[in-house]
Amino acid sequence: MDCIGCDEPIPEARRLAEKGCSRCIECQQIHEGRRARNAR
């Protein structure tokens, strides 16, 4: 499965740890940072 943010493969360990994830760790951190800034 590829990340919806960068189109790179999502590592198997992440897919197993976070069922249903659609972003790699790096893209997820960016996404969460944007959500936190918009929530202010």
Rank of each mutant, 00 (worst) to 15 (best):
M1W: 07
M1H: 09
M1E: 08
D2E: 14
C3K: 06
I4H: 09
G5E: 03
C6A: 06
D7P: 00
D7C: 09
D7K: 14
E8D: 10
E8I: 05
P9R: 13
P9D: 13
P9A: 12
P9L: 12
P9W: 06
I10A: 02
E12V: 13
E12Q: 12
A13S: 11
A13W: 08
A13D: 13
R14V: 00
R14G: 01
R14F: 01
R15H: 02
L16C: 04
L16P: 00
L16Q: 14
E18A: 09
E18K: 15
K19G: 10
K19D: 09
G20D: 06
C21F: 01
C21S: 07
S22K: 15
S22W: 08
S22R: 15
R23C: 01
R23P: 01
R23F: 07
I25P: 00
I25D: 13
I25F: 14
E26V: 12
Q28F: 01
Q29P: 05
Q29C: 05
I30C: 01
I30N: 06
I30Q: 10
I30F: 07
H31I: 04
H31K: 14
H31L: 11
H31N: 11
E32P: 04
G33L: 04
G33R: 07
R34M: 10
R34C: 04
R35G: 02
R35H: 09
A36D: 11
A36W: 07
A36V: 14
A36T: 10
R37I: 09
R37L: 12
R37D: 06
N38K: 12
N38S: 13
N38L: 15
A39P: 04
A39H: 10
A39T: 11
R40A: 12
R40Q: 10
